[in-house]
Amino acid sequence: MVSQNKPLSDGQLHHYHQDGYVLVKGFCSKAETEKLYKIALEDEAMGKNALDLNDQTGKKTRLSLWFTPGNDPFGYLVRSEKMVHAVGQLMGGESPVCHFHSKLMQKEPKVGGAWEWHQDYGYWYKNQFMFPDQVMSVMVALTEANRENGCLQVIKGSHKMGRVNHGFAGEQVGADMEMVDNALKTMDLVYCELEPGDALFFHSNLLHRSAANLSDHPRWSIIACYNTQANIAYKETSTAWKVPLQTVPNEAILEWEYESLSNADFLKKENDPALKDTGWEGDVKVN
């Protein structure tokens, strides 16, 4: 039974737990998506705080990452009832949903770099979150995502492998390619092609990657990452991950007055724990 407090069906929950992800078509309306994309392009704080991360070929992918959801349309989206209740369903609903961080992914035409094979928990393990089942990501497409412009690729069911060792791949963190190759022999590779407004909910241990954008069209998306309050992060200096979200009505995205992102607590590259060498990364083959 689908309701406002339980927006995902039993079938969608089954797909998430079985496959490690579930795609919800039209999660955001055309008007919501256009507003979010317009603000992403025009808000100076978003561009000013963007990080350039090189892949193994030197191509750059830009992302802007912030921790506390504010009173802006992105903050309203990640705190919206439809989003928070869906995430709560997928993570079990026993502990309040918190927001770990959000990031705007900006993959420009011809120059937008690849993301190597990885699990989000391959990064977040360094933050020492205890339970990977209680931390997850939601990607909302702001532009079309397809094979030509480097859409997300996932290995279906790979979240059941548990955490794979990760090392450095350029300025990114990449999964042990021997394990990735074995996973590709065992499970299906899926290209997650999205229309603007579609949302992909995925588990923190799902292996995924994206190719460089060699097309003439940009690929932009917002990825909101969530945690449950019961899932302690012993080495995370931000505090958003343990603050229960105060939901806002879905109509806030379009109808409420909003502020600039200039007051957001953006991540600085030098403060990213995922990029710090802990000593064992050099033993992991990532290419």
Rank of each mutant, 00 (worst) to 15 (best):
I39D: 06
V154P: 05
I39W: 14
G282M: 04
Q229N: 03
V78L: 12
Y258S: 15
P7H: 11
G58W: 08
R79K: 15
L77T: 09
M179T: 12
N250S: 07
R79F: 05
S29E: 04
T278F: 00
F27Y: 12
G174P: 08
L267H: 10
R147N: 15
M161L: 14
F202P: 01
P273N: 08
V140H: 09
E178S: 08
S260G: 01
H17N: 15
L53Q: 06
L152I: 15
Y16S: 10
K269I: 10
L254R: 07
V2W: 00
E251I: 06
N287M: 10
M161A: 12
S221D: 01
N71A: 10
E148A: 15
L77C: 08
P218F: 07
G93H: 08
E251V: 09
A141H: 02
L207E: 01
K269V: 04
G112V: 01
E236Q: 14
D52C: 11
L65M: 14
M83C: 10
V138E: 01
L206C: 01
D176I: 07
G88D: 08
D265Y: 05
F266K: 11
V135S: 07
G157M: 12
Y226G: 06
P132G: 06
D181P: 02
R62W: 11
Q89K: 13
V154D: 03
T33M: 07
G170Y: 00
A212V: 11
H101P: 03
D272L: 09
A86H: 11
D265K: 06
N146S: 15
V87I: 15
D265V: 10
Y226D: 05
M105V: 08
D181Q: 12
A240W: 04
M105D: 00
K38R: 15
Q89H: 09
A145N: 06
K35V: 08
S204T: 00
V173S: 13
W256H: 13
N165W: 02
R62Y: 03
K268S: 09
W220Q: 07
S238N: 13
I39E: 11
L261N: 10
W66Q: 02
Q229R: 10
G20N: 06
S238C: 08
V243L: 10
K185D: 15
E236K: 14
T186F: 04
G88P: 03
A252H: 14
P69W: 06
K126N: 07
L63G: 03
I39H: 12
G157T: 06
K48G: 00
G88R: 06
V140R: 09
G75C: 11
W66N: 13
R163W: 05
M139D: 13
D188A: 10
Q18G: 03
V2K: 09
K185G: 03
D52Y: 05
K276A: 07
H101G: 06
G26Y: 03
F27H: 09
D277E: 09
D52H: 13
I223A: 14
A183Q: 09
L275C: 03
L261H: 11
N182W: 04
N165S: 12
T61F: 02
K269P: 05
V180C: 01
F27W: 13
F100P: 02
D277K: 12
H118W: 00
V87C: 11
N71P: 06
K242H: 12
M177W: 01
A50C: 04
A175T: 07
